[in-house]
Design a protein around this nucleic acid. Structure first.
Length: 796
DNA sequence: GATTAGGCTTCG
């Protein structure tokens, strides 16, 4: 998906609600909110070493109340900044969503909102409707406009006209709309491009073949099924065999819409300056209702595994669980769709060392897993697939009987009358594989079916915990990051004097040494990066997950509702109620300050709160240096909350203590030395809390020419590797983006087109000996002393 | 502003 969508109607899409700019707050969850306003300032595009690009802008709301803050600063990072710079002009109306909120450092100076919006990554979307012609700038804009460079050509302002398919003349470049009646997935042409073909029709009932040549997969029309509507810009008519065909020309661009009447208008397009005018909406709506009234589309061939019959050709929507190469012309895909095929399914056994994804599943799940063998040209597309991907496989064939599977010994193929599924070589009948985006309606439906299976299976077999399946199922692939292209390499920072070896040699080495290898990153876990963030206790070396906000909020809520009998605040404290204006009605909570600090005029330095929510604590952390949520014990004393939640808030950061190593921890007055503001270490020490630190933990699978190595951990030196501190990654979107970008470059997502770079790595080999199992201890590897270096190239 | 392909079941 493009990060930026330019639309004439600047309303939020789908599930988003527009909220007033004044309601933006650092405490609120704005994931379903969007804001709307006019661009009153557009800063220059600045090249940034980390994000490629960086741009500041400000938008102002129209028709807001007299007292409200009506303008807010936005910080755009990465490709979004680049897109915005090209496609948006001062005076354009925009809506923004998918932002995070931060404190605006310039609020005092520019009199804008106390907070600013940070937009980056996939979730950030800006929609733009250009300023109507003749609409004069506001006085504030007029003052600043002069300083801006002349406006770049804005594609959104361009007017497109569309030709009906019956009115096409030979040898002209046109724009057309059509309903897809046939399509083929892109395949590698003999030339330099990928080639895809489709046939479209419209109300004139003319059927026209189109040939698309584009080097990038994602620039081809993203067609998921017959009946989808495509918009093709800049295609040339070309006579071929008594009829006209359409072929891409320079400037070609495609957008695809669902053909279902009433479906949303969200286009599938790789164009970064995408424009959707009223006419576009009308064209799509008219084609949708025309299709609904006709009977011209070929039947939908989608069939669930539960309805698969021997010998049939059908389309399968499914999830990939695991895959394994069988030989150079054949790859095995293990898939499921949550339904059970009435026919016994062929079991294909492959060496577990070459399987990508889980190698075994529970018996119940196994019955639902279909083995799909893909051949020849499809081996190439299967290479891009990752376990967890949702797929549509077109023109799959159900094959009954015993099948000779290449690469298997004769004893393994004697499964008579079991169904196997083949995706034969070639592209006839649109044969091919397509990855479905996580937000597609088909994926939603698939997930529902899989949910039902899991629930009923849990009831039947509560003892079975099929972690392999859950791992894949809960780890959907992230959608491709548009334009996250940077060349990257790794550099060893150690001075070990060892000769680089290959992975095969490494696996023969005894644990305990360090080794240098050169390998590619095949896959990594967890796919959801927030799960890579852990809390680590350096004393007992335990590691735990960071609790999510909901859990933390619950603990605070429970503590607020705790005992409220007679209380005895500590003698060193001053207590009193404080009224918070936050929230719809505002509310009151109790604060406790140190007498000592208060007398020194250092009231801002430390505050204890009873009856506070998570939001309150975060809110007050913007004003007070150290915020400690506490509760009353049954005996009426101030005590710390359960250490499963943060015991301290400092700015945007929160700090946790280790439960095991903090025995006897309690609320005590920290000694203030007056020179510096006390920090988390001072407070933890005073309370007797063993501080935990944030760490990053990832597991890599490496591969070189001959071997694959699993269980390669990146942990101790993860911060060196990414050039980001784990503590920053916990609170800072920019740090998270840097990790994401690094991983995307090392292991490019499907469709991004990048090659996997070769990495120079220093690995430590070790094993963990458990007391009762000295034999057979597996060897693990850890990446050490290695950092990534990126070499960005500017985008044109 | 070149070149690619130009649907129409594998044969495992």
């Amino acid at each position: 998906m493009p990060v930026i969508v330019l639309a004439d109607g600047a309303e939020p899409g789908g599930h988003l609600t527009i909220i007033p700019i004044a309601h933006i707050s650092i405490d609120s969850d704005h994931s379903h909110h969007s804001i709307k306003g006019r661009v009153v300032h557009k800063g220059p595009l600045v090249s940034s070493p980390i994000y490629h690009f960086f741009l500041k802008a400000a938008i102002e709301e129209e028709n807001c109340g007299p007292q409200e803050t009506s303008s807010i600063n936005m910080v755009l990072l990465g490709t979004l900044a680049n897109d915005f710079s090209q496609a948006v002009n001062q005076g354009d109306a925009v809506t923004a969503s998918g932002f995070t909120v931060g404190k605006s450092p310039t609020a005092r100076k520019d009199k804008r909102h106390l907070f600013n919006l940070l937009l980056s990554g996939e979730q950030a979307v800006i929609r733009v409707s250009p300023r109507p012609p003749g609409d004069l700038p506001t006085p504030r804009e007029a003052r600043t406009t002069k300083a801006l460079p002349p406006p770049a050509a804005v594609s959104s302002a361009q007017k497109y006209t569309y030709v009906k398919l019956a009115d096409l003349k030979p040898g002209v470049v046109v724009n057309v709309y059509g309903v897809v009646v046939f399509f083929k997935q892109p395949f590698k042409s003999r030339g330099s491009d990928m080639c895809s073909s489709l046939k479209i029709t419209d109300q004139s009932e003319q059927k026209i073949s189109c040939t698309i040549f584009c080097p990038k997969m994602e620039s081809h029309p993203q067609i998921f099924q017959i009946g989808d509507i495509v918009r093709l810009h800049k295609v040339k008519t070309q006579p071929y065999k008594d009829s006209l065909t359409l072929v891409t020309t320079f400037g070609f661009n495609a957008a695809t819409f669902s053909g279902m009447a009433g479906a949303d208008m969200e286009p599938r397009s790789s164009s970064r300056t995408f424009s959707l005018s009223e006419e576009d909406r009308r064209m799509v709506t008219e084609l949708r209702s025309w299709v609904a009234s006709q009977n011209l589309l070929p039947p939908d061939l989608t069939v669930a595994l539960s309805a698969a019959q021997p010998k049939m050709y059908f389309d399968l929507t499914c999830q990939l669980l695991a895959k394994a190469p069988v030989d150079s012309t054949c790859t095995l895909l293990r898939v499921w769709d949550g339904t059970r095929c009435p026919h016994a399914l062929l079991k294909v056994r492959v060496d577990s060392n070459i399987v990508e994804g889980p190698t075994s599943f529970s018996e119940e799940h196994d019955k639902l897993i279909a083995n799909v063998l893909v051949y020849d040209n499809h081996v190439r597309s299967a290479r891009q697939l990752k376990p967890g991907d949702f797929l549509r496989i077109f023109n799959l064939r159900a094959i009954p009987g015993s099948v000779k599977v290449p690469g298997l010994s004769s004893s393994q193929v004697e499964e008579v009358n079991h169904l196997s599924f083949h995706l034969h070589g070639g592209t006839a009948y649109g044969r091919g594989i397509r990855v479905l985006p996580d937000n597609s309606p088909d994926v939603h439906e698939l997930r529902r079916t899989m949910d039902i299976f899991h629930e009923s299976n849990q009831e039947k077999h509560p003892e079975v915990n099929d972690s392999a399946m859950w791992g894949v199922w809960n780890t959907p692939p992230e959608s491709p990051v548009s334009g996250a292209s940077m060349e990257i390499s790794t550099e060893r920072r150690c001075d070990h004097d060892v000769r680089p070896i290959n992975l095969g040699e490494l696996m023969c080495c005894e644990p305990g040494g360090v080794h240098h290898v050169r390998a590619q990153l095949r896959s990594y876990q967890p796919r959801r990066l927030h799960r890579a963030l852990k809390l680590y206790c350096s004393k007992c070396t335990s590691m735990q997950d960071v609790p999510d906000d909901e859990r933390v909020a619950n603990v605070y809520a429970e503590a607020s509702a705790g005992p409220s009998g007679p209380t005895s605040p500590p003698p060193w404290s001053l207590s009193g109620p404080v009224h918070l204006a936050a929230g719809p009605a505002g509310h009151t909570l109790n604060v406790h300050l140190s007498k000592q600090l208060t007398s020194e005029g250092r009231t801002k330095e430390l505050i204890f709160l009873t009856g506070c929510s998570l939001q309150d604590a975060r809110h007050l952390a913007a004003t007070y240096h150290n915020v400690v949520p506490v509760r009353w014990s049954r005996g009426g004393d101030l005590v710390l909350l359960d250490l499963s939640v943060p015991f301290l808030f400092r700015g945007r950061k929160s700090f946790y203590g280790c439960k095991q190593c903090s025995e006897g921890a309690g609320v005590r007055e920290p000694t203030a030395d007056g020179e510096k503001i006390m920090d988390e270490k001072d407070i933890a020490e005073a309370f007797g809390v063993q501080l935990m630190t944030f760490v990053l933990l990832l597991k890599f699978r490496l591969r070189d020419a001959g071997d694959t190595l699993d269980d390669v951990f990146l942990w101790r030196d993860a911060e060196t590797f990414f050039g980001v501190s784990a503590e920053d990654a916990a609170v800072n979107q920019q740090a998270q983006d840097q990790i994401r970008q690094t991983l995307d470059s090392l292991c490019p997502p499907e469709g991004a087109g990048g090659d996997r770079p070769w990495l120079d790595l220093c690995l430590a080999a070790y094993n963990v000996i458990e007391s009762n199992n000295i034999e057979n201890t597996p060897t693990f590897y850890q990446i050490c002393h290695t950092s990534t270096r990126s070499h960005k190239h500017l985008q044109r």
